[in-house]
Design a protein around this nucleic acid. Structure first.
Lengths: 217, 217
DNA sequence: AGCTATGTGACAAAACTGTGACACATATAG
DNA sequence: CTATATGTGTCACAGTTTTGTCACATAGCT
């Protein structure tokens, strides 16, 4: 799960990022709306956690930007906690509203609940539907299943699309920085991915000398 | 859906009861812990919404009483909203904590989320009928009984369907975050569930490396 | 003690993974 | 243009990991 954390308090941001990662999530932490916009344009997230009072604008405004681009669920974490603030948050499409200050345990409980309830980890394009939760891919109703590595590789390619992802990046991210399988291993995963993607296999291009790209159309 | 509303503010209580009923729920409204205990002893509820500051005691205390008797989810609605209060609420097993004052719309959004996440205590599909309250399953009239763990696991799978539930999620939710049975334990519960589900056992799929899914057809 | 509910360990079965070999493709130099 | 070097696609095999299942141990209750 790819999580975007937008929080300008350095200490809090660092803490939350580390706790989210302990939960097995991939957390990206930025402290300005500008940086957040850039990340949202570059990657896809399954959850966004954001403050309202930020140095370069209001989290409420940013949440509108997010809504236009994706349907990613988001959680407000803020000291502005009046009934009106909360209602505004929920009406903007928030799925949670956590008032500051809070205890970490409460934060984690509520984030977990949110992920269980709203966290759909899907990629859809035309007749192609990939579900990273059930590790399945459906093409024109025909479905087949991924294994863990395949899913992780495809997810990374899609998340970073249209950037080229090197084999080393894949090995680091998917296999872990302490594992050193041969680079042929990556190719093999690509092979089986392509088989399972059928006619959509052409979306995975190989870039000679570098790695692979997923091109959305 | 049977909902218990424990709120001593007459005006607020009446409003909430009426709004809950507009949502199609059956709402019982009482204003004292004494009355609430009596109702809890007499009936089964699928959701309890309660204030903390009550004329004849603390809602926190009552929530402990509830926990002993049932596993019904409950939501605190209260003006005591410090981080400590909220944490205490969540640690007592609350699934939501709504600070006063609030707008009705926020209240309804959060109640609906809760209901969706925790579901009802009966599940019916074709010839399959599962009752999580009496811990029974009936298939074509043939009935058998679950034990507590089996029921809790099945309920979680069904409530989150079609999402995959990891063994860790199951261990946290069913066994508790402070218990650490082996993951084999989960598999064994799945085995006995499958046995009791007979021909419907195929609905429980395992997702290698992740966990299990319940697929409603 | 007898009973039930629950957790554990062992082992087989199934699925996944990484490797090397080889064919094929693409770049670069001559 | 051809030869050579290098990168990539694909396959089958064997080792590893995960899961299904069973028999048994333990705990708590009556």
């Amino acid at each position: 799960m790819n999580v975007l954390l937008l929080e300008d308090d350095k200490s809090l941001g660092a803490t939350l990022k580390s706790r989210l990662e302990k939960e097995g999530l991939t957390a990206h932490w930025v402290s300005t709306i500008q940086d957040a916009k850039q990340l949202v344009d570059e990657q896809t997230f399954q959850l966004i956690i954001l403050d309202v009072g930020l140095p370069d604008g209001s989290g409420f405004a940013f949440s509108k930007y997010v809504r236009q681009k994706t349907n990613c669920p988001f959680i407000f974490v803020t000291a502005q906690t009046s009934a009106e603030d909360r209602l505004q948050g929920y009406e903007l499409g928030a799925v949670e509203f956590i008032p500051k200050p809070f205890h970490l345990k409460e934060f984690l409980i509520r984030v977990k609940n949110t992920i269980q309830l709203h966290g759909s980890d899907e990629f859809v394009m035309d007749d192609l539907k990939v579900n990273f939760n059930t590790l399945t891919v459906e093409i024109n109703g025909q479905s087949s299943e991924f294994n863990l590595k395949e899913a992780a590789v495809l997810k990374m390619l899609i998340n970073l699309s249209p950037k080229v992802v090197s084999r080393d990046q894949l090995l680091d991210h998917v296999w872990g920085e302490d594992q050193f399988p041969s680079q042929r291993t990556v190719d093999n995963v690509i092979v089986s991915l392509r088989q399972k993607l059928g006619s959509y296999s052409v979306l995975i291009h190989s870039v000679r000398g570098v790695g692979y790209v997923f091109k959305k159309n």
